[in-house]
Amino acid sequence: MRIVDLTGVKNLLDSEHAQSLSWINDAAEPVVALGRLYPSGFRVPLHSHNKTQLWCARRGVVLVSTTDGRWMIPPGHGLIIPAGLEHSTEMISEVEMHSIYVDPSVAGASGPKVVEITGLGKSLMEELVLVDVRPLSVRRQRLIMELLLDEISLLPERPLGLPFPEDERLASLCRRFLKTPAANAGIDDWARDLGMSRRSFTRLFRSETGVSFVTWRQQACLFASLPKLAAGEPVTNVALDAGYENIAAFTTMFRRMLGSSPSTYLKARSA
Rank of each mutant, 00 (worst) to 15 (best):
D5A: 12
T7V: 11
T7L: 08
T7I: 07
K10Q: 15
L13M: 15
S15W: 09
H17S: 04
S20M: 12
D26M: 06
A27R: 07
A33Q: 07
A33E: 05
L34M: 04
L34D: 00
G35I: 04
R36V: 11
L37M: 10
Y38Q: 09
P39H: 12
F42E: 05
F42Y: 13
R43D: 06
V44T: 11
L46Q: 14
H49E: 13
N50R: 14
K51M: 09
C56R: 14
C56P: 00
A57E: 13
R58F: 09
R59V: 03
G60M: 06
V64G: 01
S65P: 00
S65F: 02
S65V: 10
T67H: 15
T67K: 12
R70F: 04
G76T: 07
G78R: 06
L79E: 03
I81A: 04
P82R: 05
G84A: 05
L85I: 06
E86H: 15
S88R: 12
T89M: 11
T89G: 04
M91G: 00
M91F: 03
M91D: 08
E94I: 03
E94W: 12
V95K: 03
E96C: 05
I100D: 00
P104R: 10
G108Q: 08
G108L: 05
S110Q: 11
G111H: 13
V114H: 03
T118W: 02
G119W: 09
G119S: 11
G121D: 11
L124K: 06
E127F: 10
V129I: 13
L130W: 07
D132A: 14
V133P: 00
R134Y: 08
Q141F: 02
M145T: 12
E146W: 05
E146M: 10
L147W: 02
R158D: 00
R158I: 13
P163T: 14
D167I: 05
R169K: 15
A171K: 05
A171L: 02
S172K: 10
R176G: 15
F177I: 07
K179V: 12
K179Y: 13
A182V: 01
A182R: 13
A185L: 11
G186N: 02
I187L: 12
A191R: 11
D193F: 04
L194G: 10
G195D: 10
S197Y: 09
R198P: 03
F201G: 03
F201K: 04
F205T: 03
F205W: 06
R206T: 09
E208G: 05
T209S: 05
G210R: 09
V211S: 04
S212A: 12
S212Y: 05
W216T: 01
W216F: 03
R217Q: 08
Q218P: 00
Q219T: 04
Q219S: 11
L222S: 03
F223C: 14
P227G: 06
K228V: 00
A230V: 02
A230K: 11
A231C: 06
E233L: 12
N237T: 12
V238H: 02
A242N: 03
G243Q: 05
Y244R: 01
N246W: 02
I247E: 14
T251A: 10
T252L: 11
T252P: 00
R256K: 15
G259M: 08
P262D: 05
S263D: 15
Y265D: 09
K267I: 07
A268K: 11
A268R: 14
